[in-house]
């Protein structure tokens, strides 16, 4: 495996003036959502065989089965159906068993080094622990997501 010793991903030193820019609540939410999506993703990169005509190598259902619409249902659709059916039958549904929020206060870790992060970034709210980590954050991920 060859991994190039990477410089930190992205690196746009912010101009002094930009520092005042504050990411609003909506963008912060959007950023958080992107992070959560990334954490559930199957792959980060594209299919390495995408340029090949590989599809015929993948064993497939025969045509009659392929046509069944049930096979191609999206997950959201499944959840919605389950919820509707559960409501009609007054039963516990998939959504009902989701964990509640914790009453415990959240903990904060430095996004750069992983130790306790007592400060938060003025612009985006990301946590960090010291000036050095703040600089690294400002040089790399700060506002990167906000665009």
């Amino acid at each position: 495996m060859t991994i190039s010793k990477s410089t930190l991903r992205g690196s746009n030193r912010l101009k002094e003036g930009d520092k005042r820019r504050v990411v609003d609540e909506t963008s912060r939410k959007r950023r958080q959502r992107k992070v959560m999506e990334l954490l559930e993703s199957d792959n980060y990169h594209d299919d390495p065989h995408a340029d090949l005509v590989m599809s015929k190598k993948i064993p497939r259902f025969d045509d009659s089965l392929e046509q069944r619409s049930t096979r191609t249902k999206k997950r959201n659709q499944l959840v919605d159906e389950d919820r509707a059916e559960a409501e009609a039958n007054k039963r516990v549904s998939y959504m009902d068993i989701q964990c509640e929020e914790s009453p415990m206060p959240p903990r904060h870790f430095c996004a750069v080094c992983g130790f306790l992060g007592h400060y938060s970034c003025l612009s985006c709210g990301t946590r960090f622990c010291c000036i050095r980590c703040m600089d690294t954050h400002a040089d790399t991920r700060c506002l990167k997501w906000a665009a």
Binding site: R28, R31, M36, R127
Partner: peptide, 14 residues
């Protein structure tokens, strides 16, 4: 000249 961490503020849970 950093922002004081607001009480309870964090990475904006959603």
């Amino acid at each position: 000249s950093m922002t004081p961490p607001e009480n309870g503020d964090s990475g904006t849970p959603i």
